[in-house]
Design a protein around this nucleic acid. Structure first.
Length: 217
DNA sequence: ACCCAGGCGTTCT
DNA sequence: AGAACGCATGGG
């Protein structure tokens, strides 16, 4: 019998404790990090964030009007720098044009309407939109990523379905609680980085002691 | 010399 | 709806 989502949450909490996610000095910096970390290690992202700050480019207005070459140079260490510099510009121009460059005004929007606008911005898909909503704006939108699907599969839990279907399962199980959403996703990633890095399964880890297919991998 | 990392957009079938 | 591919740097 596979464990439930609340049971998974409890097991991860016991194993890894509070995570203090998402690291960042401002809501906008968290949005920038969400784009820069796409398929990229956080170590490389930290360097790019530091370089953006050194260049005076950690605000929507600054990035929206930045010299393209300067912007590309600042984010280069995060990889895919031609795409990501374009994505950061698109996000920044959206914030300048729709919210006067003030990220705080975004919090007044209704979440699902805002989400629809975010995913229309080039470079922002389902996962990045939810990271922005959840960690930058404190809204209750659960983040589903590759670690999430991998862990569900490893534990014999239901890992099928679209992004939206998996997201709904977590949101229904956790009760529309932004704090819980943020902490569980952070724990899933923390766990994934700790034990699931090189393998599609993790049956030797503390969480997977209850994995029904343990020993069959 | 590989393999991977806190995805996304495009272009197929 | 789902799979294949390019994008690019830096660490193991």
């Amino acid at each position: 019998m596979p464990m439930t989502i609340p049971q998974l949450f409890a097991a991860l909490r016991k194993a890894y404790g509070p995570t203090h996610w998402w690291p960042g000095d401002s809501s906008f910096e968290i949005m920038v990090g969400a784009i820069l970390t796409q398929n990229t290690s956080w170590r490389n992202v930290e360097k790019a964030i530091a370089d953006l700050k050194k260049a005076g480019l950690m605000s929507p207005a600054a990035i929206a009007s930045a010299n393209l070459w300067e912007l590309q140079r600042a984010v280069r260490s995060s990889g895919f720098y031609r795409q990501k510099s374009r994505y950061l510009r698109a996000l920044s121009r959206y914030i300048v044009d729709h919210y006067s460059g003030d990220v705080g005004q975004m919090k007044r929007r209704r979440m699902h309407e805002l989400r629809d606008e975010l995913v229309d911005i080039p470079g922002i898909g389902d996962e990045t939109a939810d990271e922005i909503l959840l960690y930058a704006l404190g809204m209750p939108s659960f983040v589903v990523d590759s670690y999430t699907r991998r862990l569900l599969k490893c534990l014999g839990m239901d890992h099928r379905g679209t992004y939206s279907e998996i997201q709904s399962r977590f949101e229904d199980a956790l009760g529309n609680d932004a704090k819980a959403f943020g902490e569980l996703h952070a724990l899933i990633v923390t766990h994934g980085k700790a034990v699931c890095r090189k393998s599609p399964h993790c049956c030797s880890c503390p969480i997977a002691r209850r994995c029904p297919s343990r020993g069959e991998h």
